[in-house]
Structures are given as C-alpha cells and as structure tokens.
Design a binder for these strands. Structure first.
Lengths: 117, 117
DNA sequence: TCAACCTTGACACATCAGTGCTAAGGTTGA
DNA sequence: TCAACCTTAGCACTGATGTGTCAAGGTTGA
C-alpha cells in the first residue's frame, strides 16, 4: 500500500483527518484509493496540502476562494464573464451628453408608473 | 442631485436597497455621495448592478466569489501565489526513484517518534 | 413646514463553511 | 486473531453570507 493513509497524511501536513476529507469533497485535493477504499496520499498530494495551508494563511483567503479560483482556472467561459464584468467601467458620464442619461433612465414618477404597469 | 438615490437604483436594478448597501460594503460597487451623504448611482453603477445579477445567476456564484475574483484582478501577488499552487502537479511519482519518497517521508514509527519529541 | 426620502446601527433568521466527535462496520498486519 | 486503522453517515457548534425590518435622526423639495 504505497502512499500515506489519512491519519499519516494529517500528521505530516498539519491538517486534521476531518479536514482532509472536507478538502477532498471541496474538489481541491483528491487522493487515489486503495482496493479497499482507503485514501492514499502520495508526495504530490502532501506537497499540495502543505502549500495550501501557506496559501490560505499568507493571503487571508478561504478554501472556498481557492475552489473558486480553480473554477476560474478551468472554466474559460466563467473567467471571461467575470472579466467582462470588471470591464464595465465604474462610471463614465461622458458616454451620454451631460444631464441626458437621467432622462433616459426616466424620471422618478415615470418609473413609478412603469412599475405599476 | 444628479444620480439615482438608493431606492430608485433598487427599483431599476432589481436589487433591494438593503442589498445595495451590502454590495457596497463588500467593495463591489461604491456609488459616490451627495454633500449630505446620500448615495448617488450613476449609469455606470446601474449597469454594473444589472450585469452583476446576471453574472451571479448564470454562473452559480456568490458575491463573495466576485469579491475574490476582484482581489485576484487587483493583487498580482495573490494571483501568482494561487497559480503557483495550481502548478504543484497533483501527483508525480517520477520525481523520486520509485519507493524512495516513502522512506524520505519517514516510516510510520519514525514519524510517531518525531511527533512525541 | 412636513411628508417622503436618506443615513447608520442593530436585532433576527436561514443557510453555508469549517471543524470536532461518535457510531457502525470493513481492512490490515504482526 | 485482534488491536489499530480505515470508511461513510450524522449530530453539533461557531462564524460568515445573505436578507428583511425597525429605530433614531438628518435632508429635501413643493
């Protein structure tokens, strides 16, 4: 059975066995299994587990954040959508002649009317 | 007072006023303020608010996720750290002569001993 | 002036993330 | 064989997210 079992991996990485299972369910690090279903952690997994701890500690982020970064990494569509949102400039009153966009956005009363309709 | 007030912005974007304040505290969209401190949403903010809703709905993600993506966008250091973690290959037993890494990782008993010491 | 709006602060509640622990049952190796 | 390990499932608790609502007090505009 080459590879460390969950308790051994926990010992050498500093995570608790409980968290190793949780990290696995989060899709971050999925060790292979022995014939009987035991988790077997190889050197690669152990390294990823150790650096994962540093990553979280040094950059004030959560497992969920890493999980999302992984999604961005694997889903180009998602990455593009998010970047497109960033491109939506925070404010550009020049796009529309001054004072004009407000009328386009409708006046308060017209909007209320529209809401009722 | 050019710009929509919070309730007006809520009406046209579909968010509740409560959520607009929440989104602001999350650092996602921060409207400018009038002299008296009223939030004033311009066309840019309104657009971002609308597209934000679509982004969340269409990609099964949370405001926290967008916030983290924004951090990645603004902190190259963080982005590099995360990418470096992804590079840590999920498993590469070839790096070390077969059966060797296990001894390097110490045997179970040696590790237990080390743990006590 | 005064109704209708705005502000911040706080209570409340559901859901999820993170984490520990126990239970019931299978695996392993000296 | 049997102690020591593994598995999944589930209860439980803290803290954060997401969201509503109410209170006390300032702003605005007809």
């Amino acid at each position: 059975m080459d590879g460390l079992t969950i308790n051994e991996a926990a010992e050498t990485t500093g995570w608790s066995p409980r968290m190793l299972r949780y990290i696995e369910r989060s899709g971050l690090i999925e060790p292979r299994r022995s014939a009987a279903g035991y988790r077997l952690y190889g050197p690669g997994e152990l390294q990823r587990l150790r650096t994962l701890r540093e990553l979280l500690a040094e950059h004030e982020m959560s497992l969920g954040d890493v999980g999302f970064a992984l999604r961005l990494h694997r889903e180009p569509t998602l990455q593009h959508a998010v970047e497109a949102w960033f491109e939506t400039t925070p404010s550009r009153p020049e796009d529309v002649p001054a004072g004009d966009w407000l009328s386009w956005e409708q006046t308060k009363h017209e909007r209320l009317l529209a809401a009722i309709t």
